[in-house]
Amino acid sequence: MHRRETLKWIAAAALVAPGAARAMAGHDHHAMAADAAPSALAPPAYTPFAPARHAALDRLVDLIIPADTTRGAKEAGVTGFIEMMHQHWMSPEEQRRCDAELDLVMAAFAAGGDPAVALYDGRRFKAPTLRKLTVYGYYTSEIGATEELDLNLVPGAYDACAAFGAGGRAPALNVWGISLSLDPGPRAADAAPPAIAPAAKGAA
């Protein structure tokens, strides 16, 4: 492996030239990304949702995190991430909740009009679990982490109070690990429980 040698260099450089170390660290990241990850670390194979549901999820994730100056959730593969998590990670209750939310979303899309309006009950977004999964899937994707945010896997130096100015991007890496909970928590927008219209469910 070259990695150890590269890191020795980075670590040594960090003492004299933090900027150079950062540049080198970025290079090292790309070199490592090209390495094949050990096969045990590959994501599990999954079966996509039925075509109509897959298409609706595609549309939903891109409404939640659209492309602008960087690519959005659909291009980042968030649809497949949610399908994988649905099959391999969620509890039966979480699966049912996601399914019900997707039913509501499909009903809203079918009703036509501005989806940004149709996806809300008052101030409440109709699919909070799918919204959260979209956020978590996007910012841990290669596009979300490296294009939208700043992924620096080996900074090589530490500056406790660096200046953060206009145009700066938040770091993508959450060092302490990210726990994902799909437990429905309290929602600030409304004290009442979300209203799920039976008619809308039936229409899906």
Binding site: R124, K132, V135, F164
Partner: peptide, 25 residues
């Protein structure tokens, strides 16, 4: 430490506003 993108998991906003909000710490 500064809050990161995970804070976007909560909230009701979607679209460009959400993406812009999470672009900075």
């Amino acid at each position: 430490s500064r809050q990161m993108w995970t804070r976007g998991g909560e909230g009701e906003d979607i679209g460009p506003a959400l993406k812009h909000r999470l672009r900075t710490p």
